[in-house]
């Protein structure tokens, strides 16, 4: 398990748009971090620095003891798995199983290990029953899980999820949440980019709020949700329950049980 570090990272696209401005942060092994902020705030740009798809214009990105500038994306893939938003951009094999095996094979694992990792990934994503089907015959929501499985099977210490819940119904979101929890329990670091603030509140213990290429807020959920004014600057609305708690002047809560408990306590005090 390895830590991540961004050291005064700035990035300007060739078009002249500066997407990141002197960002410094570290992520400890096993943390579950969400990157949130409005469109164009720099979330995806930041995440793409983690596996070398983008290189900083200045500053440096360290993945454990590796400087991303000194390793190819294909090499960095052994440390940072990146699940892209659209599964259509990567699926090309004729069966789910082969698709999931593509990543670990690229990393040069022995066939027995590949088979074991594929099986684990399919189990974790509940795709074992469709292992022999053609990925394009699956519903889009399941296809998204194929993309997730294909990265989980690479057994990387860090996993980046780009908008994991788009296009998923409530059941699908729950299933993805369960997968994330299982991966977390395995000790891997998870970085989630998402506009789904409820999902982030449920599954990420640390939130990094980006706006205009800068870190506006960085901390545990309760600290970040308490700054409604700063969140508003980057078009982030706290979860419904948090807003309800704030309106009722109760301690912040993003799950029903703690909120109900707080409500009952305040009733009793009256």
């Amino acid at each position: 398990m390895i830590p991540l570090a961004l050291e005064e990272v700035s990035f300007t696209y060739p078009s002249g748009v500066t997407a990141l401005r002197e960002i410094s942060l570290t992520v400890a092994p096993g943390e579950s971090v969400a990157l949130i902020g409005q469109n164009g705030s720099g979330k995806t740009t930041l995440a793409r620095h983690l596996n070398g798809l983008l290189q900083p214009s200045s500053g440096r990105v360290m993945i454990g003891d590796w400087d991303t500038r000194q390793h190819t994306v294909a090499k960095l893939a052994a440390r940072v798995g990146y699940v892209f938003q659209h599964p259509e951009h990567q699926i090309f094999k004729r069966s789910v199983q082969d698709e999931v095996a593509f990543g670990p094979r690229n990393l040069g694992f022995a066939p027995a290990r590949v088979a074991q990792l594929v099986e684990q990934a399919l189990q974790a994503t509940q795709l074992s029953t469709v292992a022999d089907q053609h990925p394009h015959d699956l519903l889009p929501a399941l296809r998204k899980r194929v993309a997730l499985a294909s990265v989980l099977a690479m057994d990387t210490p860090v996993v980046v999820l780009d908008e994991p819940t788009t296009g998923q119904d409530a059941q699908g979101v729950r299933a993805i949440g369960e997968i994330v929890e299982r991966v977390r329990a395995g000790g891997r670091t998870i970085i989630t980019i998402s506009h789904d603030i409820d999902f982030c509140a449920d599954h990420c213990s640390r939130l990094i709020v980006l706006g205009g290429g800068r870190v506006l807020l960085d901390g545990p959920r309760e600290t970040v949700f308490a700054h409604g004014d700063i969140l508003e600057q980057t078009a982030v609305e706290p979860p419904q329950l948090v807003r309800l708690a704030q309106r009722l002047r109760l301690p912040l809560a993003w799950e029903p049980q703690p909120l109900l408990a707080a409500l009952e306590q305040s009733q009793r005090q009256r």
């Binding site: 596996n51 190819t72 294909a74 052994a78 798995g81 990146y82 892209f84 951009h89 990567q90 690229n106």
Partner: peptide
């Protein structure tokens, strides 16, 4: 644009393109 995203997605899965 699609081609460049696909290249990125596959490189991120360890595909050596160079």
């Amino acid at each position: 644009e699609r081609a460049s995203t696909i290249i990125d997605a596959q490189r991120a899965r360890g595909l050596e393109t160079q």
